[in-house]
């Protein structure tokens, strides 16, 4: 089958959109997954401590 411009455009316009939506749903699930809350809370506070040495 020959891949011409119109084929690619059609592919992009349909699957590109699905890809975008699917990706967005995954991100939403990740961001709002209940058990991730603790991890995010820890991450945002841990940069504030004044410890200036690598951990062993």
């Amino acid at each position: 089958m020959e891949i011409d411009h119109n084929t690619l455009v059609a592919f992009s316009k349909s699957w590109g959109l699905f890809y975008l939506l699917g990706f967005f749903i995954c991100v939403l699930i990740y961001a709002f997954w209940p058990s991730n809350r603790k991890r995010f809370d820890r991450a945002k506070k841990s940069i504030l401590d004044q410890d200036d040495k690598p951990w062993k």
């Binding site: 967005f24 991100v27 939403l28 961001a31 991450a43 945002k44 506070k45 504030l48």
Partner: peptide, 14 residues
């Protein structure tokens, strides 16, 4: 002060 919303920063990243 910690960032206001960590979740928001993830969503805006993607």
């Amino acid at each position: 002060r910690p960032i206001f919303s960590y979740r928001l920063s993830i969503l805006s990243f993607w």
